[in-house]
C-alpha cells in the first residue's frame, strides 16, 4: 500500500493550476495521502514599477492565497487535509526545497507547459535540488491512467522505481511494463557480427532480469521489453516506446547508474523532462537508496 505522508503541489497562477488541483484530488482519492500543501512563491522582482502603480497597494500575498483557496475549494473539496502556503522569496527553488524539508514532503507535483510556452528552467533546477520524488504533470496530460511504463537500468534507484510502480499498479489495477534500453558499442568491435552481438547482449540482459526477478519476487510477473538504443539516445528510445505503447504514466528513478551526473552530457530523467510529453512523469527519489 502506497502512503504519502505529505505532498506538495506547486502552483504558478496559470490555467494549469486547476488541472493540478484536480489531479491531486484524484491521487488523494486513490492513494493514502496525509496532507497536501498547495504552494506559490510570489516573484516580486518580476513585477515592474508600472504594474505596482497600476494595482496600487494591493495585498498580493492575501490575493494569491485567496485565489488558491477558491480553486482548492472548488476542485479539491475535502479529498485530504490541506494547507495553502504563499511566500515572497527571491529564490523559488530554494524556498520550495526548504518547504520539502520542513514539512517532510514525500512527493512534489509540478505542472509543465510545452517548450514553446516555457523554458522549463525552474523545473530542471527543482529536479536537481528537491530532496523528494517529483511528479511532473504536462498541461496536455489526461487524468485517466491505465498503462504504466518503468524503464530500468538495474541500478538500485531504478529497481526502487520498479517496486513502487508495481505497488501502484497492484493497488490501482494498472497495466505495468518494464523497459530496458541497451547499447552496443559496435564502433569498437567492427568485426563482430551485429546480429551475434545483439543476441549476446540480449542474453546478458535476460540473465540480469532473471537475477532481478529472483531477488525481488514481486516483479516476476511483470512483462519486460528490451530495446536497442542504436543511433538514438536512451531518452529518445524511451520516448519512442511510449508513443508506440500508448502508456499513460512514465516512472523513472531520479538517480541512475551514472555516478557523475553533473559531468555527463545530460542524464536520462533530465532529457526526458525537457521533451514535450503528454503523459505524467513520476521521478522517484529514494532516500534509502541515495543514502
Amino acid at each position: 500500500m502506497i502512503a504519502i505522508d505529505a505532498m506538495m503541489v506547486c502552483l504558478d497562477l496559470s490555467d494549469i493550476d486547476e488541472k493540478l488541483v484536480v489531479f491531486t484530488r484524484s491521487i488523494c482519492e486513490r492513494l493514502q495521502v496525509g496532507k497536501v500543501y498547495f504552494v506559490h512563491n510570489i516573484k516580486a522582482y518580476e513585477l515592474s514599477e508600472d504594474f505596482r502603480e497600476w494595482f496600487g497597494d494591493v495585498d498580493l500575498a492575501g490575493e494569491v492565497e485567496g485565489n488558491i483557496h477558491d480553486i482548492v475549494s472548488e476542485q479539491f473539496g475535502n479529498a485530504a487535509a490541506y494547507e495553502v502556503l504563499v511566500s515572497e522569496e527571491p529564490n523559488t527553488e530554494v524556498i520550495l526545497a526548504d518547504l520539502v524539508k520542513r514539512y517532510k514532503v514525500k512527493l512534489t507535483l509540478l505542472g509543465k507547459k510545452s517548450s514553446d510556452r516555457s523554458t522549463g528552467a525552474l523545473g530542471t533546477k527543482l529536479l536537481h535540488i528537491l530532496p523528494c520524488s517529483v511528479l511532473v504533470f504536462p498541461e496536455t496530460a489526461i487524468f485517466n491512467i491505465e498503462k504504466v511504463l518503468v524503464p530500468i537500468d538495474f541500478s538500485d534507484t531504478s529497481v526502487h522505481a520498479l517496486k513502487l510502480s508495481k505497488n501502484l499498479s497492484d493497488q490501482l489495477g494498472l497495466q505495468l511494463e518494464i523497459l530496458h534500453v541497451y547499447r552496443l558499442p559496435t564502433q569498437y568491435f567492427p568485426l563482430i557480427s551485429e546480429d551475434k552481438a545483439v543476441r549476446k547482449a540480449e542474453e546478458i540482459v535476460k540473465g540480469r532480469f532473471a537475477g532481478l526477478q529472483k531477488k525481488h519476487r514481486e516483479t516476476a510477473g511483470v512483462p519486460y521489453t528490451l530495446v536497442r538504443a542504436a543511433n538514438k539516445s536512451i531518452a529518445e528510445r524511451i520516448r519512442l516506446h511510449l508513443d508506440k505503447g500508448k502508456h499513460d504514466l512514465l516512472v523513472l528513478g531520479l538517480k541512475g547508474n551514472n555516478p557523475l551526473p553533473t559531468l555527463s552530457f545530460g542524464g536520462v530523467p533530465k532529457e526526458i523532462y525537457n521533451m514535450d510529453m503528454h503523459i505524467p512523469l513520476w521521478l522517484v527519489y529514494s532516500e534509502e537508496v541515495i543514502r
Binding site: D12, L13, S14, E46, L47, F51, W54, V58, L60, E63
Partner: peptide, 9 residues
Amino acid sequence: YQQLMAEML
C-alpha cells in the same frame, strides 16, 4: 508572470 498576476487580480 505580470500577465498571470494581473489576470488573477
